[in-house]
Write a protein that binds this DNA or RNA. Sequence first.
DNA 1: ATTACTACTAAACGAGTAC
DNA 2: TGTACTCGTTTAGTAGTAA
Lengths: 229, 229
Amino acid sequence: MSEKQSWRHLYTLLKLAEMGAHRRTAKISTEFLARKLGVSQQSASRHLIELERKGWIKRTITPEGCLVQIAESGLNQLKKLYANLRFLMETAYPPSVTLEGVVFTGMGEGAYYTSRDHYRRQFMEKLGFDPYPGTLNLKLLSDYDVKTRLELEAYPSIEIEGFKSEDRTFGPVKCYPAIIENKVKGALVAALRSHYDASVVELIAPICLRKNLNLKDGNKVRVEVLTLP
Amino acid sequence: MSEKQSWRHLYTLLKLAEMGAHRRTAKISTEFLARKLGVSQQSASRHLIELERKGWIKRTITPEGCLVQIAESGLNQLKKLYANLRFLMETAYPPSVTLEGVVFTGMGEGAYYTSRDHYRRQFMEKLGFDPYPGTLNLKLLSDYDVKTRLELEAYPSIEIEGFKSEDRTFGPVKCYPAIIENKVKGALVAALRSHYDASVVELIAPICLRKNLNLKDGNKVRVEVLTLP
DNA sequence: ATTACTACTAAACGAGTAC
DNA sequence: TGTACTCGTTTAGTAGTAA
């Protein structure tokens, strides 16, 4: 969907579907399509050529107009858009939210927790990566970020079960897949420890975020938190 | 939706919604939006300015980025697109199909039927216009058109009830709202009489189609048949 | 850091027209 | 009629940069 010009083509595809070309072969002249698109006949012609090149439509030219049918790959584009919109319109929470905070050094307990075998195995299974032993602590910057972080509690999360060891209890943890600094896929973990308040979040990733993103205490970090399953 | 450039703006709106701006005020920098849109930061900035001018978003600029929320009119645009796509994806029939045929002169019975009071009142009530007394007969041109006309039978139609007079019975009639030659809003009536086969359709309109469209026998006419209620 | 202006480039568009 | 080419115009997009 994010290919260049693809959006304009999707619009043409939508109009073709409105004429039934997604269910049947429709006879559509470039002039008629042009009216529907609000462009010139020449542009409509070009759009059809481009759509055909992309493999989004099948086309047969006849003297009375084009016989057009949307191909499977074209229909998939429309379905993708539909699924996207349905999610946006029907669910109460957004697909992603972004948080900003500054790096700070905790008490070094992150490494201890993330390397507990019960946690670690669940991270691998449910998040799809083996966490680097240690968490990146972020102090949220503004009221906006704290408010957003609190809203996160209401969104569906990945639940990591707690467990008991010989001498103590490890509580359950909520995770949210996240993209850190637009680069690294990791996760935001909530309540891994109870030391911090709502203005603090912890991040885990398959790699050492500090090293890989060259972060030092006080650096600002942007996190895109994903709510999609 | 068909205003100029409106489609590109709708795309930006969709991306903003993906960041939650349709349910909450989201802090979004033009740089971040630009990545999501696949354009430059400058273009993203321009898009936001244009969306704000249109009244589709509310925006507050802060040093750390823009606080963006999609306005009601913007949300309506997304809802419109969603409803449109839902109809296309969930229903088996298309919103419109086009037919082409050539004008021919019937036996002059159209005027008699369309002016029967029981029919006429139902046309006014259910189609929203008082039909000109008479029908325009079209002989469909190709196999494609005949096939399309037959498919029409399976689509939902406006039902005109039959009735009895003193001496005879008038059967029920199916109607489909239609746009004739991209200009006149009328309707296609099916089985008003049983004289003709599947390669013939009859049109009614509030005006005399022959006169207004300057039609003579043998002229080609394009009809866009609407299936939407 | 941000936003967004100006100046320029690239792309989309449309008029004319060939087929 | 149709489609679709060339080519000049318009519009969208980007780079550089000021605030």
